[in-house]
Amino acid sequence: MSALLSVENLRVEIAARDRRLTAIDDISFTIGAGEILGVVGESGAGKSVTGTAILGLLEPPAALAGGRIAFAGRRIDTLDEESMRRLRGKEIAAVFQDPLTSLDPLMTVGEQLVETMLTHLPIKRKEAFARAEDLLRMVGLPAPRERLQAYPHALSGGMRQRVVLALAFCCNPRLIIADEPTTALDVSVQAQILDVLRRMCRENGTAVMLVTHDMGVIAEATDRVAVMYAGRLAEIGPTRALVEEASHPYTRGLMASIPSLTRRRDTLVQIPGAMPRPDAPVSGCAFHPRCPSAEARCRSERPPAFAVEASQVACWLADPARRSVSA
């Protein structure tokens, strides 16, 4: 199966006063049609920047500095602004973190939906309104007909994120970049929103790049997971494999730091130290200063991605040469 989205050797740099900082450092991954890929990592690991780069919405001082992004077999990182605009909202939609600020406060929910559809679809205003009502019903907004006339401020955070989901789905996109779609919401609402997102994707065959730092969301909603660390990809593989037996020490640390109800501990498990910042990059493997298994090689040489079963792991521990020796 050819991938719907393929990102190869993506680099994003941020122009600072006297030098260029690397925000995304040579990452590659694919998303298949209808697949939900989770992207996890600490704040500043480059999750959101990756999503923004795919949407073509990087703004100075951040800019693409290498690699290629292909969507449905067509290279999109080199498209001109107008072609990219036609793709955005229609083929690749987005859901952002804060539903309270994602909607124009001066425009009704219905108008914003209709405006988006009229921009991308060959339909009349009346059909667009009918479809807007259907969409609001599908995302589980009560009394959708009345809500079309409502302004965003009259809706709660959860309801607004449902509207944002309706906006994302309104032109039947093939891919949705969902950047922390539940982070700003009430815990009780998070599950509902995630549920709507997952259900609508399965029904419409929409693929999702689900950016989050919530491992619970990952375990619950995704098919595969990419773990990002300091602008690099640490590990990518099937969700189950990563949750149950991760290969990368960083992923293992992440999994161990999820508080468990069954195994009670007095203190929360954490990974000591902090992630290197883009203005102070680390030689070799970016994780080596915090890694419990680091060795001399990790400090000098950057590990490539090794295949471990269905996963790709950027760690010398996963080096097949080494594994055959130890086995």
């Binding site: 919405l57 036609r86 955005r88 909202g89 952002f96 994602s102 406060p105 001066l106 405006e115």
Partner: peptide
Amino acid sequence: RTDFIRFARARGLHRGAIQYRHGLRN
């Protein structure tokens, strides 16, 4: 600079619609 303008761009709206219908009105 606001989020809803960024989201309007992510919705693929025309530049004019973003600048005037959403930007100027606000």
